[in-house]
Simulated assay, not measured.
Amino acid sequence: MNETINSMLTRRSIRSYKTTQIAERDLNWILEAAIYAATSRNLQSWDFTVIQNNDMLKKLSKAAADTLRKMGDARSLEKANDPDFSPFYHAPTVIIVSGNDNRNARIDCANATQNMCVAANALGLGSCYLASFTQAFDDPAVAATLMKELGIPDGYKPQFAVSLGYANEKPATPERRRDVIHFVK
């Protein structure tokens, strides 16, 4: 089978990571794959923030948990009150993908995020495509501080993230629906 297609078909969302940091050369290939993602009109409406600082990841997790507590529903409260809560699943590396105000920026960010996940799998790394962490940016005062600390440029907003690391689990292959393909010839 073609290597690229194999990487797409075998990629799984990893939610448990070893503590070992990923190699810098692998990180650089993953980022290279991101900036080669297709973008609307080649506007490249994204910005990438690589976080390998555990204190910053804990700070983002706390901000997300604080927002979950404010939501008040039982499921959100359960997650927020879990002392082990991390929207990044305790991955040693997280890449936040932020988009500008271009109307297609979210799609551009999604393309880059998917490229990173497939590249990570091709390199033998685990990844998870994330969006729920953006709750950490719901409070404008908290968001302003976080954005500054993360170096996210003015006019950009976090859209997605990718958690990266060496997998500490091997998820089963989920069954795929086959009734979603329709041909018109």
Rank of each mutant, 00 (worst) to 15 (best):
S98Y: 02
N121T: 14
M147F: 07
S163L: 01
K157S: 15
S86C: 05
D101K: 14
I30K: 04
D66E: 13
T145R: 13
L130Q: 08
M1G: 15
A74R: 09
V162W: 01
I14H: 03
E169M: 05
M1Q: 11
V142Y: 08
L150Q: 01
P158D: 00
A141G: 07
N104K: 13
R103L: 11
D101A: 09
V184N: 12
A80M: 04
T93A: 15
A122L: 08
L130Y: 06
G155W: 03
N115K: 08
A131C: 13
R176H: 10
E32P: 00
P158I: 01
L146V: 02
S132E: 14
V180N: 13
T19I: 07
I35C: 11
L31R: 15
K170R: 12
K157T: 15
T67Y: 13
L77M: 06
I96M: 05
N104A: 14
E149M: 05
C117A: 13
V162K: 00
P140F: 10
D154P: 10
S45N: 10
G126K: 10
E78S: 12
Q135G: 15
I107P: 00
G72L: 06
E175N: 06
V97T: 05
I107S: 09
V50W: 01
A167R: 07
V142T: 15
N102R: 02
M8K: 06
A136C: 03
T19N: 13
Q52E: 14
Y156C: 09
T39R: 03
D66M: 01
L123S: 12
R106I: 10
I5F: 15
R12V: 00
Y129Q: 11
R11A: 06
I95S: 08
L150S: 02
T134L: 08
S98L: 02
I181W: 06
L9G: 03
I35S: 06
T113N: 15
D82N: 15
D47E: 14
G151A: 02
E175C: 01
G126R: 10
G72W: 06
L123I: 09
A112L: 03
D138W: 11
Y156V: 07
I107R: 12
F48C: 02
A143L: 05
A172F: 08
Q114E: 15
V118R: 05
K148V: 02
F160D: 04
N53H: 02
I51D: 02
A131L: 11
L31N: 13
D82Y: 00
L123G: 12
N28F: 10
L164G: 04
G72Y: 07
T67L: 09
V97P: 01
Y129A: 09
A23L: 14
F133K: 04
E149P: 04
A131F: 12
Y156G: 09
R69P: 00
E78T: 11
A63L: 05
T173P: 06
A144Y: 03
F137V: 03
D47C: 11
L43N: 09
P87A: 00
R106H: 11
A74E: 13
D82H: 02
S40C: 06
S16I: 00
D108C: 02
T19P: 09
D138L: 10
A110E: 05
N111S: 14
M56V: 07
P158Q: 00
R41S: 13
F160I: 03
A122W: 08
A64C: 15
I152Q: 04
N42C: 09
P87L: 02
M1D: 08
